[in-house]
Amino acid sequence: MRSQLQNEILLLQGFRPLNSAAVDLGLGPVKDAFPNASFPLGAVHEFLSPTAENAAVTSGFIAGLLAPLMRSGGTSLWISTSRTLFPPALKNFGIAPDQFIFIDVKREKDALWAMDEALKCGALAAVVGEVHDLSFTASRRLQLAVEQSRATGFVLRRGAGNVGTTACVTRWKITSLASEPIDDLPGVGFPHWQVELLRVRNGRPGAWNLMWERGAFRPVYKLPPFFHEQKKKAG
């Protein structure tokens, strides 16, 4: 009875369950933070990335989320005013870069307009917008657009400006962590991130450590340091 009521409330809040709920983004334990334990598709997500390094990590995380969405041949748009994304690198995340269409605009206003138009079109797997600032009004427009078309939007906020309230469903911050060695070999290992879910509507915010290993997310649970030493001794 209570869960039914909860679902009805979610529906009223524009949080419709998708018929394509089968799409699993492979987020593992992060899923439990969302209502209905499924990543909210058909919504706008906001990512904070104050530095260039942050932007790189966030683009990687978004690419990891997009890979399952685009696996069936879907197309995505990458809208930006100052794009540094290197298309061939998307292949590392299992996305064919030719399935991406890049829109490079000069003004922030045009980027938001293009994102709004793209989100209204139901033919896209996802729309990624790189902007510096996102006002509440602009985020509200985007949210209204996706409620009609059920498209998924990712807003990558570059720059360390003040972060106000937005109408986005979630707010994330991804920071890089020391990479996990591959089979205890020296050198740079698999990408390793701290994924912070700062805000989520009707869910529980939290922080997780995830790594991108051979085309999938894998949660990393911090083990007490003595475990490593024991393992070393045993090995």
């Binding site: 197309t75 269409i101 829109i103 045009d110 138009e117 079109c121």
Partner: peptide, 27 residues
């Protein structure tokens, strides 16, 4: 929604009309 989708080409036409066809890239 693949690249063949008509809705996609209609969207790109609209974007090209406002911000110019030279700002749309595919690689």
């Amino acid at each position: 929604g693949g690249l063949e989708d008509e809705r996609l080409s209609e969207l790109l036409d609209r974007l090209a009309g406002k911000i110019g066809a030279e700002s749309i890239h595919r690689y």
